[in-house]
Design a protein around this nucleic acid. Structure first.
Lengths: 255, 255
DNA sequence: AAGTGGTCTAGACCACTTG
DNA sequence: AAGTGGTCTAGACCACTTT
C-alpha cells in the first residue's frame, strides 16, 4: 500500500493541463492578452505539442480562448448573449431592424431535411435568402432562409432583381404575410466551407445550428437555418421583457 | 499552367475523409451498425490513425457516429428532439411529470456565476438539487438547480431528510411558489467529471448548457444549469402546440 | 487474452499573417 | 523572412469491454 490516490486516478495530461491553464487565465491574464506560442507552452509544461493543443482546443470550445493562424492565441472575452427572439416582433424576417443583413438570394432546391420541414414538393425550387447577423462589427451568425415561391406570390413580377436587392424584395413580400408563430430547435454542428468563411472561422468550427419554422396561414411559410459561432455566442431565449444583449458570463461548473 | 484547381485547393485530408465517410454512412450503413476499427479504416484510406480520428471526431460531434472505448464505432441514430419548454407548465420544477428525476440535494455555496444570476449574497449556501433527465432509458441531461434557502422557508423543519428524498422535499416546497416566468440561455460547453459520469460520456464531451432563471415574486427564485449531451440531443423550443419529442433530423447543410 | 478506442510522443511540413 | 497556428505521420502505451 501507500499510494491509493495517485495511481488510481490517472487523469489524462491534457485534462490536468486544461485545468491549470484555466486557472491561469482567470488570475494571470487579461482579456485580449496573447499567450506564449504553442511550442513555448508545450516546452514549459513538459508535454508534446499535440497534447498541449488538445488542452487548448477544449478551452477554445468553451469560449475561453481564441486562436488564429499566423497570429496567436488570445484570451477570449466573455461570450456574447444574443437574443434569439421567442415571439417578440424582433426576429420576424423583413422587419426594418438591422439584426440581420441581407446578403444574397438564389432560387434552388433545398436540402432534403429542409424540404421535409417545409412539407413542400421534393424537386421544388424555393427562394433561398442568405443573411448574416453581426455584433460589435463581427459576423456572429449566417442564415439561409428558405421561402417557397408559393408563399410570396407577389414576387414573380420583380424578377430582374438579384443579389442583396433580391433578398430584400423577398423579405419585403414575406413580411406582408401575417406570421402566426415560430418554432425553434438548437443543436450542435460544425461549420461548412461557406459558413466558415462568413463567420471568419476555419471549416469544421463548432456552431450552434438554430432551425426556425415560421408559420403563416396554418402552414409552414418558411424555414430558417442559422449557424451561430459556438465559441463566442450564448443564445438567449428571452420572455421576461429584457431585450438584452447581456454580456455577462452565465456559468461554468466546477472543472 | 495545367492544373488550376488541384493545387489551389489543398483541402485537408481529414476534411475530405469526413465527406467520404459521411456519404458512406448515408448509403452503405444502417443505424447501429458498427464500423471497421480505426486501424483498419486508417489503413484502408491510406492515412495515419490520428488523421482518421480527426474525421471521426467531427462526425461524432455532428451526431453521426457514436464511439465507445473497448467496444467500437457505431452509426448513431438521428438526434433526439427534446423539448425545453418555453413557459408551458412542463418544466416547472416539482411538477409530477417525470421528465426530471431527483438524484440528490446538498447545501453548498454555488459557483460565482450562479451567485451573480441569483443576486444573492456571495458566501450564502443554497439548496442544490441534482436531477437527471432520461429518454429511451438513457440519461440525456444532468442539472443542478440552485434554490436559495430564503425562497423555500417551509423547509427548515424537515431538515433530517437527505439524498433524493431531500431533493423531492425542496422541489415540493419550490412548487408552492407561484412561478411568474422563465428565462433561458443556451451555449456550448464540455462535460465536467461528474456530469460526464452521469451522461455516460468521457470528461470533456461536448454538451449544450442550458441556464434557466426561474422568476417568482418579482425576484429570481432559482437558477438551473442543465447540461445536455450535444451529440445525441436537439433542443426544441416549442410554442406551437405540439409537445413533441420529434425524432426527425432537422438539417445539415451541404458539406 | 484479445480487441477496441483514448492518450501521448517527437518530429515534419504547410498555410497564413505580419513586419 | 520570421513567427504563428493547422495538418500529418508512425509509432507506442493505456484504459476499457468483451470473450
Amino acid at each position: 500500500m501507500g499510494n491509493t490516490q495517485l495511481a488510481s486516478v490517472p487523469e489524462p495530461k491534457y485534462w490536468h493541463l486544461k485545468t491549470v491553464l484555466s486557472e491561469a487565465l482567470d488570475t494571470e491574464f487579461a482579456v485580449g492578452e496573447v499567450l506564449p506560442n504553442e511550442r513555448q507552452l508545450s516546452a514549459r509544461f513538459g508535454v508534446a505539442r499535440a497534447t498541449l493543443r488538445q488542452a487548448l482546443e477544449q478551452l477554445e470550445l468553451e469560449g475561453r480562448l481564441q486562436r488564429r493562424r499566423g497570429v496567436g492565441t488570445t484570451v477570449a472575452p466573455p461570450r456574447l448573449g444574443v437574443a434569439v427572439g421567442t415571439d417578440h416582433g424582433q426576429d420576424r424576417p423583413g422587419t426594418d431592424d438591422d439584426l440581420w443583413q441581407p446578403v444574397d438570394c438564389v432560387d434552388a432546391v433545398p436540402p432534403a431535411a429542409v424540404v421535409r420541414l417545409l412539407g413542400s414538393g421534393s424537386g421544388e425550387t424555393v427562394h433561398t435568402v442568405q443573411r448574416t447577423r453581426s455584433a460589435d462589427g463581427r459576423v456572429i451568425a449566417a442564415e439561409l432562409l428558405y421561402v417557397p415561391a408559393a408563399a410570396v406570390p407577389g414576387l414573380s413580377a420583380i424578377e430582374p432583381l438579384a443579389g442583396a436587392a433580391r433578398a430584400r424584395a423577398v423579405l419585403r413580400e414575406f413580411r406582408r404575410l401575417g406570421l402566426e408563430g415560430q418554432d425553434r430547435a438548437v443543436e450542435l454542428g460544425s461549420a461548412g466551407a461557406e459558413d466558415a468563411k462568413q463567420l471568419d472561422r476555419l471549416p469544421g468550427a463548432p456552431v450552434l445550428v438554430v432551425t426556425t419554422r415560421h408559420f403563416a396561414e396554418g402552414r409552414t411559410a418558411a424555414v430558417g437555418v442559422a449557424t451561430y459561432r459556438a465559441d463566442t455566442c450564448r443564445l438567449t431565449f428571452g420572455e421576461s421583457g429584457a431585450v438584452q444583449v447581456t454580456p455577462q458570463g452565465p456559468d461554468r461548473r466546477a472543472s
